[in-house]
Nucleic acid binder design. Structure first.
Lengths: 126, 126, 126, 126
DNA sequence: GTGGTCTAGACCACG
DNA sequence: GTGGTCTAGACCACG
């Protein structure tokens, strides 16, 4: 799994890393139960600090995407992913809102917007 | 136009304000050429720091949503909205990506996701 | 509010700080809406690192005991405390279990144990 | 005696093992003088590291719950359990304190809390 | 070896 | 000024 970070981005490195790992799971490059590099190994790989990786891992653990075992190290949650619950639905809706309103202002059609969404789903849903 | 800010949100207040104003334009509550309250007045209204309002206004000006005149004050861009250009398209796609990948992981169907997008467009496109 | 930390303790400093703040709320020394010292001020007061205080604050925020505002700084949750929910009930039960089993082994009577609990409640419930 | 470990728990495995063995003694599943599996056998049974079992056993020996003989192996202390001394009383009180203060904050009644304690004692005191 | 905790110190976004 | 992020480096508990 190739991880590319944009150190110049507004998006914090740990958030980028979190997103990339979730993307890796969505793309089935990372299977449930599969091990992730240790905090130190990942940090060395990416050339970032251990704590930055740890922050991403803790956030992923908090959300239920990964488990952090004392023994096995870090693994993708073998019991499946966190659910499509109300909290997530609300987050999707509130994250979409400013994107859609700006699209409306700029004259991007709903068709084009939906097309982008569909293409992304197609990229991950085999 | 009623502006509700969530002071506990992770989203910076100036970003929330920017989003709300863009939403106001999308909803046609704010028409091109229409005046917005001065930085000072808006700050007093919302009970937030003048710096915060100023930052939101500057960002909106930068993106072409509003004009800031010394005399006429702040107005919604009378010449129309900024375009649906490549930069925006790329931003939409890169903002949608982490949302869609997490949706895929959590088992939210593309149909449900697209439905949310459609509903948002329906809310603003009369 | 006087905070005493035991730097030699097995209990991490940030956990001790978390406990002390919860105790301060239980003792009504800290009222809902009341401000706590900033991360830096608290760290300077206690002679510990900013990050250690921040970790305690983040944990308290996560559990709903405090709010961290960009503007007002850190305040005791003005909307009241987190609820006595199932998760807490289970935590109480699972934390009590090893304590009670060892008490049984050592011949501490349930009367004495309950007495200790009652005294603690009496100390905080006015 | 069935030992269930939660490998995902925050509680160290050796602590969980220690707790379980003390619980076994409290439940009279393990009688004074009764043999426990060797470090090696226990580790194999539980699928954990020998170091982990050894650490639990050493801690139990330190506290006076078990004896470790070169020849006879590991046995529950035949001379009875460690006493209900001041050190234990202080530990009970200091362990109860953060639990009770959080219960007070969350609005758990002392009655409910005491009830949980009583139920646990009832489970072990026949 | 691995994650957890802690420190010291820096820069930046936010207000 | 305040919290958020990030780095570099250290020690320790756990396994």
């Amino acid at each position: 799994m190739i991880i590319r970070l944009d150190l110049q981005s507004e998006v914090p490195i740990y958030t980028q890393l979190k997103h990339t790992i979730i993307e890796g799971i969505a793309a089935k490059e990372l299977a449930p139960g599969e091990a992730l590099p240790s905090v130190r190994a990942m940090a060395a790989d990416l050339g970032v600090n251990m704590h930055t990786v740890n922050k991403a891992y803790q956030a992923l653990k908090q959300d239920g995407f990964i488990h952090i075992h004392r023994q096995k190290g870090v693994v993708v949650n073998p019991d499946g992913m966190p659910p499509n619950d109300d909290v997530f639905v609300e987050r999707v809706q509130s994250d979409l809102r400013p994107l859609v309103t700006e699209a409306v202002c700029r004259g991007m059609s709903s068709e084009q917007f939906l097309q982008f969404c569909s293409e992304l789903f197609a990229e991950f849903k085999e």
